[in-house]
Amino acid sequence: MADGATIEDSQVRLPPRPRRPVWYRRQSFDLLVFALLGAGLVWIAVHGAQSMGYRWQWFRVQRYLWRIVDGEIIWGPLIQGLVVTLQISAIAMAIALALGLVVGLMRLSGGIMAGIVSTAYVEVVRNTPILVQMLIFYFIIAQILGINRFWSGVLCLALYQGAFASEIVRAGILSVRKGQWEAARSLGLGRLDTYRDVVLPQAVPLMLPPLAGVLVNLVKHSSIVSVIAIFDLTTQGRTIVSDTFLAFEIWLTVAALYLVVTLTLSGFVAWLERRVATG
């Protein structure tokens, strides 16, 4: 500091100001808007249902979930459908992740054939509707390969989500710094060792959050198998509604069941993410 420019601390005491208010006072306007919006939505729902003259019959829903006969639980069609949805989703997930890894690596390999094949796959799958893909798969490809409707559904879903997974794998691998590759190569590590021991351990934690999105999408899109008459959760819901006309109760229950599965899945991936980050 220049000569003579220093100041005594005590000469420049600022006058006091009131303490910063607590969070709900600072956010009071937001809270008010939120409460008003919520109240409005509830009013619309209740008023709408009343003016439609809809008679809620929640008590009829339970027997489509489970019944107890002679002290034994018998699972209802909704739970049976949920099990089929889980089976399809689980198998398709495993295939989609493997496919995503392989195709992602193919796109990065620099080989001309691998590049063309994998790019064509990703672009075709991402740029056509999954509903159309499902129908093509069931009515054409399944006939040629001689597979049943369950596996048509599984493979179509895996192929669809695998394309998205491969883009995530590619981006994750590209985000590993070039110097890591060079260090591995300079130490004489082969391509496979470099991927397994150096690149993937750094790339996978980055891939996990977007991959969770792909897996959740896969569960949701699995409802599309209802168009090829697989008795999954959605198909069961539709059957029950057409038998009972409990449209509101059944569809809300079906949505809740999907929500349980997808939120559990997101929670699991979030846990995995934390584990990978710390260990």
């Binding site: 260090a183 130490l187 082969g190 351990p201």
Partner: peptide, 29 residues
Amino acid sequence: REVGMVFQQFNLFPHLTVLENCVLAQRRA
């Protein structure tokens, strides 16, 4: 295998300990 290299940016493997950094290539290569 015969030529070692040291980089400006070190390029250590961040997910491995110092010891594991030194062990990895010996084991694999």
